[in-house]
């Protein structure tokens, strides 16, 4: 069965009309997003995330390579039928009301008027804007625009949601609400592709992640694998100097904390061995913990290593 998204050697070079200077915004990206997965695309500003999304949606044309959406070439208009998209820095026409905006984009997505009439109140209620349907978008706050934008992306019950910074400008409650909506969609089998610089948000919601930097994939994998098994932390009191020196040689890191010594070991064996030595010297063990790195650690490391 085909993937939700598959990119093969995707390249996008922008050339300046006047100077002829080239910018390789996307430089040979190949990645797969499985059906039903929650995928996060991360990267620093200017890494090529938004350009990659634009290539997927055919808003920009690739210089080389190709992308498919559910097996269809992304350049075909029909490839975009199963996609619901919320752009970053969207500018919804302010003369529209929430209701008319959903109706317009629903019609463009191919929905008939009866389905639109049924779906609009449902979605406005889902995003907490049931009482705002007949108000012009010009009067909406940033968070409300983001939520009505999400409703727009959900209008035709898409199989693939592409969201560019969906929590941008949304307060914590709204953010939680968006996450709940996305989790419900995930359970219904929708594929969710999240383009975000909010690492905590991606870590909380996405199962798979790709980090791109300077137009290339710097790291790709499951969030669980990338952040797991970083090490073991042992905090002990009354550690003799001789033992501290011995363990320091084996530990990844050592720190003094509240008068105690904290060791960080890379493997379980090393941690167990250290515990045996510490107990043999009758040291007080204050804490033993398995530490994981955050996605932020993984992100910073991936960017620096590239």
């Amino acid at each position: 069965m085909s993937c939700a998204i598959e990119a093969e050697g995707l390249v996008k070079i922008f050339r300046s009309r006047w100077s002829g200077k080239e910018v390789r915004a996307v430089d040979g990206i190949s990645l797969r997003v499985e059906r039903g997965s929650t995928f996060g695309l991360l990267g620093p500003n200017g890494a090529g995330k938004t350009t990659f999304v634009k290539l997927l949606l055919s808003a920009a044309h690739p210089t080389a390579g190709r992308a498919t959406v559910f097996g269809r070439d992304s350049r075909e208009p029909e490839a975009r039928r199963p996609i619901g998209y919320l752009p970053e820095n969207h500018r919804f026409p302010t003369y529209m009301t929430g209701h008319s905006m959903l109706d317009f984009y629903g019609a463009l997505s191919g929905m008939d008027s009866a389905s639109r009439r049924r779906r609009i109140p449902e979605l406005l209620a889902t995003v907490g804007l049931a009482d705002w349907g007949n108000t012009r978008l010009g009067k909406y706050s940033k968070g409300m625009l983001q939520r009505v934008g999400l409703a727009q992306a959900l209008m035709h019950a898409p199989a693939l949601l592409v969201l560019d910074e969906p929590s941008d400008g949304v307060d914590p409650i709204g953010r939680r609400q968006i996450r709940d909506i996305l989790q419900a969609l995930e359970q219904q089998g929708a594929t969710i592709f999240l383009n975000s610089h909010l690492l905590a948000e991606v870590e909380l919601f996405c199962r798979d992640v790709a980090i791109i930097h300077r137009g290339k994939v710097a790291l790709e994998g499951k969030v669980k694998d990338l952040t797991a098994g970083s090490g073991y932390r042992i905090e002990a009191d009354n550690v003799p100097e001789r033992l501290e020196q011995e363990l320091r040689a084996k530990a990844m890191a050592v720190a003094q904390r509240n008068g105690n010594v904290e060791f960080l070991f890379g493997s379980r064996e090393q941690a167990n061995e250290a515990l045996d030595l510490l107990r043999a010297e009758r040291c007080e063990i204050e804490a033993v913990a398995c530490t994981t790195s955050t996605l932020e650690d993984v992100f910073v490391k991936a960017i620096h290593e590239q």
Binding site: K54, A59, P77, P87, H90, R91
Partner: peptide, 15 residues
């Protein structure tokens, strides 16, 4: 053609 508007229009299955 305003940025933020055109991308959304182009994301729809319309030539």
């Amino acid at each position: 053609f305003e940025p933020g508007r055109i991308e959304l229009l182009l994301s729809k299955p319309v030539p």
